[in-house]
Write a protein that binds this DNA or RNA. Structure first.
Lengths: 132, 132
DNA sequence: TTATAAATGTTATATTATTACATAACGTTA
DNA sequence: TAACGTTATGTAATAATATAACATTTATAA
């Protein structure tokens, strides 16, 4: 049984914003949007983001320095993440494909390293942008 | 037949440095190291890095904001990259596993998106760090 | 050789993220 | 409930990463 994390005030404000936005958000854009709620400093944002990433409520899109709400209800911690990113409109969506995650979670090579985590980012053009 | 890119002066200086280092290097560490060779500004470094990434001589480790020389002689462009990263000593190595790259290059999901590129980063503890 | 693209040089600035320190709120358990 | 440890918050300063804008030079190819 997983622990249900109750979010703190700042964590909740920031999670709700990202979640409602429906897409990836950057830290300073988040900051701008929550200033009216009393969150004034970058560090307040980054601290909440760190925690939200840690507990799997959001993921960081590393190639974009942006954060997106977890779209996978069963994803409690961010140790196996995959995203598809449109290089034209920058739309991002989380890939939840059990074959893929199984394949990658079990992947091992000759290095003798046991991987505890991975992040995969696919790039291309989404349907909309392809047809333009 | 692929075009053989002859590197420009700055590109060569910066590639040689990264290549000799044997590991990932950060942009400002590169800058510091090439100042004696006349490269004085961040932009000079970033421009060379951009080009080197474009032609596949180096790859960017997105989760670390660092650049590593391509360890895969057949890798002419960086459209299919995979790395293993030790979370303790930060050692990075490029994974070249034809099954993996075949699997990922052919991956497609129901989104209708055709992926032209991917980047995969595995995390864990390397042999050395595990045994500590 | 001329024109086009690629690379360079330089200054300034934008964007992303962390350090350091002080205080407050929360949860546990004695 | 008092005391303690842990987590979260507030605030200021600054570090680290990356790009914009503009001028000039060098390489490439028609």
């Amino acid at each position: 049984m997983q622990k249900v994390h109750s979010l703190s005030k700042n964590q909740k404000i920031i999670f709700d914003l990202i979640d409602k936005s429906g897409g990836p958000m950057k830290a300073y854009s988040i900051l701008f949007n929550v200033q009216k709620k009393g969150i004034k400093a970058p560090l307040q944002v980054y601290r909440a983001l760190d925690k939200l990433v840690e507990i799997g409520k959001i993921h960081k899109i590393e190639s974009r320095n942006a954060f997106i709400a977890c779209q996978n209800s069963s994803c409690q911690i961010s140790k196996a993440t995959a995203f598809s990113i449109c290089e034209s409109c920058e739309n991002v969506s989380e890939i939840s494909n059990s074959k893929l995650s199984k394949y990658l979670s079990n992947f091992s090579d000759h290095s003798g390293m046991k991987y505890s985590k991975y992040n995969l980012e696919f790039f291309g053009l989404c349907k909309k942008c392809k047809s333009k």
